[in-house]
Structure formats: C-alpha cells, structure tokens
Design a protein around this nucleic acid. Structure first.
Lengths: 346, 346
DNA sequence: TAATGATGATAAAACATTTTATCAGAAGTA
DNA sequence: TACTTCTGATAAAATGTTTTATCATCATTA
C-alpha cells in the first residue's frame, strides 16, 4: 500500500542500503555513495513521495522521538485547572521546537498499579515527564529501577535519582504571608492545600516561617485544611467566619481556592480587600479575572513544563545532566485583593 | 536488554509462535496449543515479566492503538481557553476507556504545510481527531484523499467525506438573542467572533434570525467584529459605548469575550445586569466564576470531544459509521448577567 | 491396511527499516 | 607484477513481533 524504501531503491536502480544512507545523510560513515546515484535516489524519493516508516525505523534504532507526558487523571484537574494547561503549554513549546512528539498518558485512579507502569515504560516513548502530586509514586521508583529516562515535576523532599523540577513553594508561602504582615496584618489565616499534594506542605511552612519571623503567634484554628478546588476555599472560609475571633487576611492554597474564599466573603458582605485581604497562589491568567483581581504568588508553571522537556531531551540524547534537582524562583504579583487592615475604632 | 518473546519461548521450552498465540489469546485460530504448554508459557511470561514490544507488533499488524489529537497551536488557545481543556478532557475519557493512547500534534503556524501533513498522517497513529478553526484546512482534504481515518471537530458548511462534529451554533446564537428579547430588550448588540473561525458565522446568523423573528431592526453599528479573546470583548465594548445610541444588551462571541465586556462596563460604572445585560457563549466553568456569573449558551464541548473519539475509534476498528455529520444540541444557562432593561422615565 | 483427518507444534515468511559484513574493481605503491 | 588501499556498491543480518506454511504423530475410518 504505502511506498517503501524498496520502491525507491528499485526506481533509482540502486540498493536499499544506499537509499537509507542518502536519505539519512549518513553516507560516508559506513556506506559510500557517489554523487550521481545520490541525486538519482533523491529524485526517486521525491517522485514517489516517500516517507520512512517511523515504526520500522524505531524498531532498529531504539529511538522514537516521542516523549510521554503523564498526568494524574482527574476530571477536575484537567477540566478546570489552569495549572495543567500551562504546564502542558510549556512542555509542548519545547517538544515542538526540538522536533519531538508528545504522547499523553494518564491513570484512571490517583496512582498507578504495576500493569499501568508497564504501559508507561514503553518502547514507544524515549522518556517520560511525570506530573505527579505524590513524590512517592511508584512510577518514579520504577523508572529509577529500570533506568528509564524520566523527569518528575514534583516537590521532592528527598534526594532522588530521577531529575525533579519544582518551584520554591516554601519561599512562595513566605512571600505571601510577609506581604500581608507588611501591610499591617497581624491576624492571618491560611487555607492549606490537600496534604497529599506535595506543594501543600512547603507553602504552609513558608507561612509559618513568616509569622515566626515577625513574632506573630500561630493560631491553630486559623490554619484550615482546605484543598485546591474552588469549593474547598468556599467551605473553609465559611468555617473561618464562624470563629469568635476572625482574621483580617487570608492566604489561600491557590487561586481557585482564593476565588472560593472571595465568594464566601461576598455572601457575608465583607468587601475584599477593605474588610478582608486575600492572597492566592499560582498566578495563572485566572488570577487576573477575579473581582477584585488577585494578589498572588507567581509560579513559573509554563517555565517548569518547558524545563522539564528540556532536561528530558538532554537525558534522552545522552548529554549528561549535572544537576539533579531544579527549583525555580517565585515572586509575588500584587493586585487589588490586598490592602492594609481597617483601623478599629474603639 | 529487554526481554523478548524469544526468551519466553526458550524458558517455556516451546516455539515463538506458540507464545504469541497464547499471549494474544488467539490460540485455536491458526495455531493449536495444548493446555499443558499453555500453562508453561503463561508461567514463563509471568516469571520474566515479559511485555510485548508495541513497535514490532504494530509493524506487522498495521495497528498501533494510538490516536492523534491535532490542535491549532497558539499559545493563547492552549493557555487560556477552557475550550481546549474540555475537548481534550472528553477525548481523553473515551480514549482511556477504550484502551487507546493519545498522541498530541500541533502546528506552529495557524495551518499546515505539506511537510506537516506528512508528519500527521503517520503509521504511528491509527487515526486523527482534527480540532480546527478552519473547515477548509488542507489537512482534512489530505486525509480524505489518502483515506486516512479522521474526524474533524469543526463547523463544516459543505458536505464532506470526513466525519465532522459540531454544536448547533446557529441555534445557540438564536437562543441567546431570543432570551434577551423575551426579557424586553429591543436594542441588542453582538460582539462577533473571528470570522476565520467556523463557529463565528452561524452564531451571528442565529442572532439575526432572532431579531428578524421579533421584527426588530438590525442595526449595523451594533454588530462589532470582535474576537474570541478577552481583549477583543473589552475593546469592542468600549467602541460600543461611544455610539450615540447605545444598546441595552450584549451578546458576546464567547465567555472570555463577555468577561472583557463586563470589565469595560465596570470601568464606565454601568452595572451588569442592571444597566446592561450580557450573554456569553460556551458556558465553560469560567462562566460561573465571573462577577456576576454569566448567562451563557451551553456548548457540549466535553461531549463533542468524547463523541469525536468514539466515532474515530469506530472508524479505526472498521465498524461502519452511517452518519457523516454530527450536530450536538445546545441550551441556554441563565445566570445573573441578564435582566429586563431599565424603564426609562421620560 | 491404507487413506483420511485431527492435533500439537515448529519453521519460515513478512513487516520496513538501519547497520554490519562482504565484494568487485580501480588506483596507488613496493 | 604483486600487494595493498581506496571507492562504490550490494547482500545479509538484526530489530521483535504476527501470520502463514509445513510437518510429524496419532487416532479414526473405509
């Protein structure tokens, strides 16, 4: 059906190996071919519209030019989280620029079983980019075990064989909280993220660090186990507002969580930022769309995706990567959801 | 390096073909194998942790179990448009459920050149899902020409060989406009989408149809060529507000465009919906996040993605698909951005 | 008893490449 | 002249499967 290398060879009146050498620009290495036949081959290939079969090629070379991108599958995560878009966007940019292709993988549950792992570590891809909430995922261990090229976008606490990429979430939590302190707030709540997700803990630690540094007491009931979804922020804030002693500022787990908080506040007629300051996290495009626009810790998500692809490609191509762990800097983007606290007239 | 079928055969003390037959559950068709050796083979495969090489398998079977998903590459489209997420989410759901894999493709420019087409129509994928703004894209033509299984998610005006999937955008435009008319509006503007995108025109036609049906005059300066991005809605609305005779309601090209409109109105201290009603389009999760939450035409984007994958899989597996064009229904989701016009006291 | 048919199994072909080994002839060198 | 080296090229091996063809063996039947 499709035109093969044999057809080209026949039309050019030469051998299969000569065609292969010419079309891969590898003539002169093992196989020599004269300029005349070179031209004949090129012309024949052009005439037949020949395209090499990547499967056959990969089978013998052991390389496919395809990278696997692994996402934790959850409809919520993919559907309504700008995070996944941006990381994919970054990965894509690099992958396309470097002439690679991208294969998408996912798990139906939260983690992977042995059968899934076998599905991931697969000759069809040269390497894997693992976007995982859980740094102890068995997939990572498996990749390390069989030395399959992989880069994990995850906040890894321990030293790992696999390259890991994360943002400085500890500093992010610190920046957000310090900003509120500098505005004059002393009663600052934190809506913490899902503790199963690796970024939740360092953000909380950053929050605590800033409080300690300013000699502010840590109020246990102002640290609420919320989550990364919109509804988590909403529910947590409602809980917060029922406390006898209310905070004057909220540092939310991420932008969606912050939006949930703003809604709960709006329902209670507490204007943001006048009566309550709110800081988000991630600083995706979504942060500019809320009302008021969110002050948020900027996470270089796009850059993390791009870097992940970059490192993986280096690994795949055999270049040695000296660095094991990459921690990208964060910064604070100040918008209109934060302001000094109201002076209480007593 | 990796364990092959030959290793399994050797350990089981049998032939390669027997192993293949047993592991593919195809024993009895051409090759017969006794229960005893069957067990030996199974045990050997298990013991060695054998996984078949998909490349080699695909090379001979001509099937890969991989579908290609083609997106128009634009950073804006991928980054900040809930549309792409949802369609991908739908495709993913079906693909995972049916045991297929997904390969992501894109073009750096807006369309594809001949070299790109060769890259898309590729033995590595069994078929293509084409998410294209332009129904006249050469990729579609190419797929039709070489009879490569493909499904296009696009509003196709003409009858095509390739299966196309779209939503009833004409009816959507009609629903949005009729809703405003029923609220009592008589001066309704439309911020039209990019005419190069195939959904723009039918939405405009639906708008016109509703106006005609209600015997309302069509005011040319109230139909503004805007676009599908946030900034387009913002700019168009500013233009609209400078007109001597202002409308009392706006039907925007999509939700992002509507949000831009709301912002421009907020800057001019025109509260929505009191002084201006705004209707969006798409009804993604984003529509619930704006202030006020958007009345919007619900597009079954997720379902379109899912259906696209479903149809393509049917095509790939050789089941005959009787229907060529699939048009999914839309409906209106009413929220708080629309209200009756203010009664003018004269 | 010879022919037929079923059973269990294997060898070999095919898939489309790349890579390695081989080979004939020309040219250069002792 | 005889030996080596270089040049242009091809045949064959290898990649890891599935599929087709072939082959014994044994039971069944005429």
């Amino acid at each position: 059906m499709a035109v093969t290398i044999r057809d080209v060879a026949k039309l050019a009146g030469t051998s299969v190996s000569a065609v292969s050498a010419v079309l891969n620009n590898t003539a002169g290495r093992h196989i020599r071919v004269s300029e005349a036949t070179r031209q004949r081959i090129l012309q024949a290939a052009q005439q037949l519209g020949y395209a090499p079969n990547p499967l056959a090629r990969s089978l013998v070379t052991g390389r496919t030019g395809v990278l696997g991108l692994v996402f934790p599958y959850s409809r919520a995560f993919i559907d309504r989280n700008p995070f996944s878009d941006q990381i994919m966007s970054g990965v894509f940019e690099e992958v396309v620029n470097e002439g690679y292709n991208l294969m998408l993988h996912t798990a139906v549950g939260n983690d992977w079983n042995a059968a899934d792992e076998k599905m991931l570590i697969d000759p069809r891809v040269d390497g894997l980019i693992l976007v995982l909430p859980n740094p102890n995922s068995s997939v990572i261990a498996r990749c390390e075990q069989v030395r399959f090229p992989a880069v994990a976008v995850v906040y890894a606490t321990e030293n790992r064989q696999v390259c890991t990429i994360n943002a400085d979430d500890l500093h992010g939590g610190y920046l957000a909280t310090r900003h509120l302190i500098e505005l004059g707030h002393t009663r600052i709540a934190h809506l913490a993220g899902d503790p199963k997700v690796s970024t939740a803990e360092p953000r909380l630690q950053g929050y605590l660090k800033a409080l300690r540094e300013a000699n502010l007491p840590v109020q246990a009931e102002w640290i609420i186990q919320a989550g990364f979804d919109w509804k988590d922020g909403y529910a947590a804030t409602r809980k917060l507002l029922q406390l006898p002693e209310r905070p004057t500022a909220i540092f939310a787990a991420n932008d969606l969580c912050a939006e949930g908080a703003i809604r709960a506040l709006r329902e209670e007629d507490m204007p943001v930022p006048e009566e309550m300051s709110v800081v988000g996290y991630d600083d995706t495009w979504f942060a500019t769309m809320t009302n008021p626009p969110l002050t948020s810790v900027h996470m270089p998500i796009y850059e993390m995706g791009k870097l992940a692809a970059e490192v993986l490609i280096a690994l795949v191509e055999g270049r040695d990567v000296q660095q094991r762990q990459f921690t990208l800097p964060v910064h604070l983007t100040i918008r209109q959801s934060t302001a000094p606290p109201l002076k209480k007239i007593q």
